[in-house]
């Protein structure tokens, strides 16, 4: 009786077939395979378990694992679809697909809305926008008085909150982005193609 040796390729936990991922996303199979190499690299930066932890995401993004950043946290949380504190390969590919040059603008608009809807209420509220402006100022070492921050937030709401109910809903957001397309500038990564 002979023996057959099958070479098994060891994949990270949460690995999904590139053919399946390509069929569900904007990526080709070969692009998914390239993403797997990037995923493996990031997911082994600190804890070598093949999953991307927040510290590893921060390290890959900022070259610093301890750099707290509200927006990076939000991106991580949206990528972590299962809400288990780590990003698996499938989550990584499906989420990055939003940033693909071929992905519909509508999908990008919806993603940014969720990103800015900090408390997942279905609206972007003034307090949330103020919190994000303060976070951005702190990140940039810019110092503006609270009054000036209020003016910026109020002015933005005058432009975006067309029904003037004190919160921005998905329809208002879509209209606002259509008038200000530069708001989506981070949402397309040419590297992905």
């Amino acid at each position: 009786m002979g023996c057959v040796f099958v070479k098994q390729v060891k994949h990270t936990p949460g690995y999904e077939d590139p053919v399946v991922l390509a069929s569900e996303t904007a990526f080709t199979v070969s692009e998914v395979e390239v993403l797997y190499e990037l995923f493996k690299k990031i997911s082994h930066l600190i804890i070598k378990d093949g999953l991307i932890h927040k510290e590893e995401f921060q390290l890959a993004l900022f070259k610093n694992s301890n750099r707290h950043n509200l927006f990076a946290d939000r991106v991580f949380d949206l990528f972590d679809v299962k809400r288990n504190g780590v990003i698996e390969f499938g989550e990584f590919v499906r989420s990055l697909s939003v940033f693909h040059p071929n992905t519909q603008q509508e999908e990008k608009i919806r993603f940014v809305f969720r990103l800015y809807d900090l408390r997942s209420t279905g609206y972007i509220e003034k307090e949330e926008l103020k919190e994000m402006v303060i976070a951005l100022l702190s990140e940039s070492d810019l110092c503006l008085s609270d009054d000036v921050v209020e003016i910026i937030v109020d002015q933005t709401f005058k432009l975006a909150d067309s029904n003037d109910d004190g919160r921005i809903d998905p329809v208002e957001w879509k209209d606002f982005v259509k008038k200000n397309p530069s708001l989506l500038k981070n949402m397309t990564l040419p590297y992905l193609k």
């Binding site: 991106v75 800015y116 432009l159 981070n186 590297y191």
Partner: peptide, 26 residues
């Protein structure tokens, strides 16, 4: 405040935390 600063979302979009392009830099 300069008019360009009047759109808070423009300001926010400059955050490094939103620049995922850095993930692909070697």
């Amino acid at each position: 405040v300069r008019p360009a600063l009047m759109n808070a979302f423009e300001l926010i979009s400059t955050s490094q935390g939103l620049n995922l392009g850095t993930l692909f830099e070697k």
